[in-house]
């Protein structure tokens, strides 16, 4: 007799990911899928894709997914959730989408306390468009639009989205996690599941910021990219829960 320890979640279909080798965005897809299956809401789930590498995520999930204009996923998700409150609505957005052109949308979705769940993939760079500097790019980190590395004098300090949204009353669940090792992945899954739970209980807006890798645009091997998350990203973007709906007023 053998028991299955791990196999691919049924929330993902057989289409192969377009992501580059070792990009941890694939892990985040798996965690969203596993969470939806374990909460028994895959059939009611509606995703909203953003622009960037996550734009093609509608090809992979075994649930409905709507593609939104750049940065506008929270606005589209707001519409879907208000018309179909019985559905579980989530957005999957990168930092080039959510933290820059979509900054107003995410702030006001949180401010209104929309009952949606946002999974925010922060890899500190614009991935799909070719490695340009994002609001989340670290000081000193090289990008195609910052060939000498980002400087505070020219571009300011990287934007801490989770901390910013945690100051807004309508955001009832805010957590930052990472997927740079198996223990971190397990914690990330708990956070994503809890973010969906926040929506299922009708508490308000929930967001999980997931630190992710971009080996291609960082110019690193996938394994070294995991190390860079731990050595450079986590010190600036500390992991942990910033607000939970049990304590939030």
């Amino acid at each position: 007799m053998s028991t299955i320890v791990y196999k691919k979640t049924k929330a993902l279909n057989d289409t192969q990911f377009h992501y580059c080798p070792g990009c941890t965005h694939g892990i985040i897809h798996k965690l969203i899928g596993e969470s939806l299956v374990e909460l028994g809401v895959l059939g009611e789930a509606i995703g909203v894709a953003s622009v960037g590498c996550s734009a093609l995520c509608y090809k992979y999930f075994n649930c409905d997914v709507q593609q939104a204009a750049h940065g506008r996923a929270p606005a589209v998700a707001t519409g879907i959730k208000r018309v179909r409150p019985e559905n579980v609505v989530f957005t999957l957005q990168g930092d080039g989408d959510l933290a820059s052109i979509g900054a107003a949308e995410i702030v006001h979705a949180a401010h209104r306390g929309e009952k949606i769940t946002t999974i925010f993939v922060n890899n500190a760079i614009y991935g799909m468009t070719g490695g340009q500097m994002a609001p989340t790019t670290l000081i000193g980190q090289k990008a195609t639009t910052a060939p000498e590395g980002r400087t505070e004098e020219h571009s300011g300090k990287p934007l801490k989205i989770a901390e910013m949204l945690a100051t807004i009353d309508g955001a009832k669940y805010v957590e930052r996690v990472s997927v740079h090792n198996p223990a971190a992945v397990r914690k990330a899954k708990k956070a994503i599941k809890r973010a969906f739970q926040c929506q299922l209980e009708g508490k308000g807006f929930a967001i999980v910021e997931v630190l992710s890798t971009c080996p291609t645009n960082w110019g690193m091997t996938p394994v070294n990219a995991l190390g860079w998350v731990e050595s450079d990203m986590i010190p600036y973007y500390p992991l942990g829960n910033l607000r939970d709906f049990e304590e939030a007023k």
Binding site: S2, I4, F17, G26, I27, K30
Partner: peptide, 20 residues
């Protein structure tokens, strides 16, 4: 040892792990 770490980290869901 069937810990499943490899499958958890695989971004492309290549791996299935069974405990015998």
């Amino acid at each position: 040892i069937a810990c499943g770490n490899c499958a958890i980290m695989c971004p492309d869901s290549v791996i299935t792990v069974e405990k015998l």
